[in-house]
Simulated scan of single mutants.
Amino acid sequence: MSFADSLAALIRDIVGPVDYLAHHPATVVAQAANGTVEVRFDSPRMPSLKGVPLVLGLPGVVAKVAAGARVRVAFAGGSPDAPEATLWEAGGLVELVVTASTKVTVNAPQVLLGDGLKQPVCVGDTLVGLIAPPGGGAVTGSITSVSSPGTTTKVKV
């Protein structure tokens, strides 16, 4: 056994082995512009890591997380060179972007936006008193189509 092997064995005996096949609890320190995160592990045996990619489990999903968010870090194939931020605790989500080539369907009885008090307007919804037509009076009707050229949304009632 070489001196390096003996030293490595001694260090493993003192600190214990690191299990790269486990999920390790950690705290997000910061998120870089490229979406990767810097994490600080709960265990003192694990060094902090930078450049850890988020593996969210769905194609086309990008997330921004807050400093302080709690995550489990796994190592793909048990390799110390392949960390992945994979499982998230509640809270800490700042922004979520879903990109799909065809459509995104939200199947729920209620969809809330912003502070939870705003609901999206959909085809088939009834509108009352949005914009006064020429000559005055309230607008009443159902949405029959919606188009979004540029940044202005036109609603046909």
Rank of each mutant, 00 (worst) to 15 (best):
P134M: 12
I11D: 09
V65H: 00
E38M: 07
G35V: 01
L87Q: 06
T102F: 15
L127Y: 01
P134G: 09
T152E: 10
T105Y: 06
V73I: 07
M1E: 11
A85R: 01
L10M: 15
V61I: 08
L130W: 15
D115W: 05
P149L: 08
G137W: 11
A22T: 04
K50W: 11
E95P: 03
V106R: 10
T99S: 10
P53V: 15
S2V: 03
S142T: 13
R40G: 03
Y20V: 02
A22L: 04
L117R: 10
V29W: 00
P59W: 09
A90G: 10
V52P: 00
T144Y: 09
T153D: 10
L117E: 14
K103Y: 15
K154N: 14
D115L: 06
A22V: 02
P17L: 10
T151Q: 10
V37G: 01
P109N: 09
L113G: 06
T153A: 10
C122N: 13
V62K: 11
D115P: 01
V98G: 11
S48Y: 02
L96N: 07
I14K: 04
T151Y: 10
S43Q: 02
L54T: 01
S2Q: 08
E84V: 07
G116E: 02
V128T: 14
V155K: 00
S2G: 11
K50E: 14
A74F: 07
G35C: 02
L21Q: 14
D13C: 04
L112D: 11
A82Q: 14
L96F: 09
H23R: 14
P133Q: 06
S43K: 02
A33K: 02
H23I: 05
A26D: 00
A63Y: 04
G136Q: 06
A67N: 14
E38N: 07
P109R: 05
V146Q: 11
N107G: 11
P59K: 10
G141H: 05
A90K: 10
T86Q: 14
P17M: 09
G141F: 04
V28I: 08
S145H: 08
A67E: 13
R12H: 12
A85P: 02
F75Y: 11
V39I: 04
I11A: 12
I11W: 11
P134K: 08
G91E: 13
V65S: 03
L113H: 05
K50L: 13
V121A: 08
V121H: 05
A32F: 08
V97L: 02
F41H: 03
V139L: 14
F75S: 03
P134Y: 14
